[in-house]
Design a protein around this nucleic acid. Structure first.
Lengths: 220, 220
DNA sequence: AGAGAAATGTACTGACTGGAACATTTGTTT
DNA sequence: AAACAAATGTTCCAGTCAGTACATTTCTCT
């Protein structure tokens, strides 16, 4: 709930950007909470400073709003990731930092995770339509690629690492940890999701990833 | 699609069990495809040999049907797992087999995965109500526990392994691989999901898990 | 200032959808 | 066989909800 900076619409002044932004913020939260068909346009409207009329005015229909909300969610999260600068770190530390960051970042952005879950339920058909999103994510892989490249040059990483697979693995842990928390803790209890355990899990994952990129060692 | 054994209702004979089973099968597939609020009771009914009337007769309301479908999905999948006997294998092989099996089993049961995804979107509130499901899953952990115990006795596994965390990690990989395939391949292409890559991923995961339970080795 | 465009308010509707009412048939028990 | 219970068929309805029609206000440009 950011204090609307440039837009304190006192009394009553037009401010299209603020209105759009307001709608999108609420939309993300509603869609993330209730899914595409579970969300009511009227509910979104009522949580907004504006009216349902404006939703249709700016976003056409429910699907248009959903797609925009999806993009907004991706954008916000990828922005957070961009703040991470790893190039000045040695490869192993850089990778460790990246993994730990990803783990935490996912935890901090449950709405984003939920939007992705929902999009997966819908077979990513709306995401596919968004070039914006594709570009952002490819950029994320490049960061990983660069670390891998440096690591291999310096001989601290093994050859033949596929950055995409690495990304897949890092994501798997970090994503699952948030996405499946409800069922997991309904079945096995909440223990794994308390702070202490989460720290340990994060460390475990960092170690696992590092082991995976290291020179192979025969295990007895 | 088992050939309805005891129930070929030729002409017109009552057969409550077959009707219930019929409804549940369709319900799982519809709910898995469209989510809770995205699913239409009428659609389920029309895909059934019976009518909407019977859905309400046996399951009360939409939520009741959904809950039963969820249980049915869990039951079917856990049955498949029960067929896996690992006690006669040495611990390392047993664990490797379990991990590989889990990976494949999840791939073979996308509807189950989707039901769990949906349930997570709903914060597991319906699953929480089902004692049946909790019991089944706890049983799954016990299988893992037993392998760990044997491995530690024999000195091939390190001490302090927590079976629950192990399960968490195995699930993370295997689940994510199915649940996030749509978004992942929309963004990065389908390469990782072709047979060849999937085999390699599976092996990679088996190795990672085995490394994790092995006696620790300092890595340069 | 005034005219056209952009933005917003208000009230409404047509289709969809979960669920119920009412009626009938099939099975079971004594 | 009759009476009761279980199962099924048919029809309809009342609430919900995405989307629209129509009217008005604010902004921008000349």
């Amino acid at each position: 709930m950011a204090t609307t900076t440039d837009s304190d619409r006192r009394g009553w002044t037009q401010n299209p950007d603020a209105v759009k932004h307001d709608i999108l913020t609420v939309a993300v939260s509603e869609f993330a909470a209730n899914g595409l068909s579970g969300t009511r346009v009227d509910t979104i409207a009522s949580r907004t400073r504006t009216s349902k009329r404006m939703i249709y005015y700016y976003f056409g229909d429910k699907l248009g709003l959903y797609t925009s909300a999806l993009e907004a969610a991706y954008l916000k999260v990828r922005e957070g990731e961009a703040s991470l600068d790893l190039d000045h770190l040695p490869p192993r530390e850089g990778l460790a930092r990246l993994v730990a960051f990803t783990f935490d970042h996912h935890r901090r952005n449950p709405d984003f995770i939920r939007m992705v879950m929902i999009e997966n339920i819908h077979n990513a058909e709306h995401l596919s339509a968004s070039q914006v999103i594709r570009d952002m994510n490819v950029a994320a892989i490049e960061k990983l690629s660069s670390i891998c490249g440096r690591g291999q040059e310096q001989g601290v990483f093994r050859d033949g690492i596929d950055p995409l697979r690495l990304h897949w693995q890092i994501s798997a842990f970090s994503f699952f940890n948030v996405s499946n928390r409800p069922t997991f803790s309904a079945i096995f209890g909440n223990e794994l999701f308390e702070e202490q355990s989460q720290s340990e899990l994060r460390q475990q994952i960092v170690d696992a990833i590092l082991a995976m990129v290291s020179q192979p060692i025969a295990v007895s």
